[in-house]
């Protein structure tokens, strides 16, 4: 009986001590902000397009952390859904709208001689990727454009096009081999010249 009692007592004391330590640590090492929101935000493509129905990527990150669906980001594509599912340890669901295709990278291009210089597109661009001034020709800084589409609609003369970014020799990358039981003409290092040697 005494052993049981002392064991209980020791456990209680230990629990109290660890509780105190944890409580102290919670206060002492308190993390400002919401780390999970930051992590979600880091996975979102930061296109700031609002297609998820939130005004920017961070608001969507906050919404996700509050239980919103993770499949609302079309620019991120299925890859982002997957990444979010991994992070939040939930089931990966198909992208809202069922767009199975990988999103194509696009940039806005202003047909400059048609621009009337109304500055409407500048006001719409979430990342300040458009350059211009009132009654002056406007242009898109292609490197800064996230391809969010938001400038297209406000343009009163419809002179903004979303142009797909083509692959150049500098952005091209090797395709993944098709897998088991396939052949590829491009592959040469695998070729053992047994016949030549023979």
């Amino acid at each position: 009986m005494l052993t049981v009692l002392s064991a209980v007592a020791i456990l209680v004391v230990l629990a109290l001590i660890f509780g105190a330590i944890l409580g102290y640590a919670n206060v002492r090492f308190h993390v400002e902000g919401d780390p999970i929101v930051d992590q979600i935000d880091a996975l979102l493509p930061q296109t700031q397009c609002g297609q998820c129905g939130h005004p920017g990527c961070r608001p969507y990150a906050e919404a996700i952390s509050n239980g919103d669906a993770i499949n609302k980001c079309p620019p991120g594509g299925q890859a982002t859904v997957q990444a979010l599912a991994d992070l939040l340890d939930v089931e990966a669901i198909p992208l809202d709208g069922g767009e199975a295709e990988e999103p194509k990278k696009k940039v806005a291009v202003i047909r400059e001689d048609e621009c009337i210089g109304c500055t409407k597109c500048i006001q719409a661009c979430p990342v300040d990727a458009i350059l211009g001034a009132a009654k002056q020709m406007h242009t898109v800084i292609a490197d800064e454009c996230t391809g969010c589409d938001l400038c297209v609609e406000p343009c009163p003369v419809s002179c903004i096009d979303m142009v797909e970014v083509g692959v150049t020799t500098r952005t091209w990358s090797w395709e993944k081999p098709n897998g088991v039981a396939t052949q590829s003409l491009d592959i040469i290092a695998t070729d053992r010249q047994t016949e030549v040697n023979a």
Binding site: N178, V180, A181, T182, Q183, S184, I188, Q193, E195
Partner: peptide
């Protein structure tokens, strides 16, 4: 073709 034959199909 004799010199650089088509690669064998990929196996596991």
């Amino acid at each position: 073709r004799k010199e650089l034959p088509l690669p064998e199909p990929e196996q596991a």
